[in-house]
Amino acid sequence: MIAFAIKRFVQALGVMLVVALISFMMFRFVGDPVNQLVGVDTSPAEREALREALGLNDPVLLQFGRFVVKAAQFDFGISYQFKQPVASLIASRLPATLELSLVSAFFALAVGVPMGVYTGLYRNTWLARGFLAISLVGVSLPTFLIGILLIFVVSVHLGWLPSFGRGQTVSLWGVWSTGLLTKSGLQSLILPAITLGLFQMTLIMRLVRGEMLEVLRTDYIKFARARGLSRRAINFGHALKNTLVPVITITGLQLGSIIAFAIITETVFQWPGMGLLFLQAVQNVDIPIMAAYLLLIAFLFVLINFIVDLLYVAVDPRIRLGGARG
């Protein structure tokens, strides 16, 4: 088990180094950073001094080493447009994105899994067919359109929920601003969370349904029935547990995508998260922010995959023995 964890950790380090290299390259290829920093009337001597001060004349490998060491200490430099440390900019936006993503993922799981189980068990009922029809909408409509539709219907027409922003936030321990503790914060969260989670929810529902249908046909379910076990024990003990491995995989990967692609939802709802920050950075060629964002998303993916691997081991004993005890 520990050997397995260490192996995965080393692999993760490798992935992070490659991503670091890619974000480092951005600085060199997306225009000259000095041009971004100085005005038009700066003299060549001043430019050269700045270049020297920033270490841009050092060998590339040394620069990369410096970039990695600094990144490991959460030092991503100064944002060109905000003239503030990137790390603190991201730190101030991170809670908004993470809260939105996690609530979306929770919504997707909490609704998607039961719907999947239901449609798998009672696939010929009207309700199950209704769920499937809804899921088709969720899969095929683009996120921004769902967001706009929700705003139009729920906020504009019905006036039930706010259409943009994060509502009132509360600062926790001075580092984490949460919208989960105020009424307006929670209200503001509902529409973006549904928009962001709807696709994942339908995906999970269809996945669980497919897996349930598959598992219910297996011999061990038939044998469980022949042993006279109760329906509940068969459906939720024996069948559901066997559907979980692929569900965990997909959910893990999707959680990464939720965080990474919150950009669109954040834009539609003017949600003050990292996605919005990143979009502004792209518009202003603010490379330090882009590089840091890239690294952060890669780190989250790697972290989530690591957790998913550990979860497999917890669910499926065959993986446990294959990997660790041999």
């Binding site: 297996t218 011999d219 061990y220 038939k222 044998f223 469980a224 029935r225 022949a226 042993r227 006279g228 076990l229 024990a233 003990g237 024996h238 547990k241 066997n242 669910v315 499926d316 004993p317 065959r318």
Partner: peptide, 30 residues
């Protein structure tokens, strides 16, 4: 009646047992 008064054994022992549960748990459950 199933399991209690009529027991059934299937063809393929490799797939008759739930792979995610210990043998003891499957027996105790039954």
């Amino acid at each position: 009646i199933r399991g209690r008064r009529i027991g059934m054994i299937f063809q393929d022992p490799l797939t008759s047992l739930n792979p995610l549960y210990r043998i003891g748990d499957q027996l105790v459950e039954t």
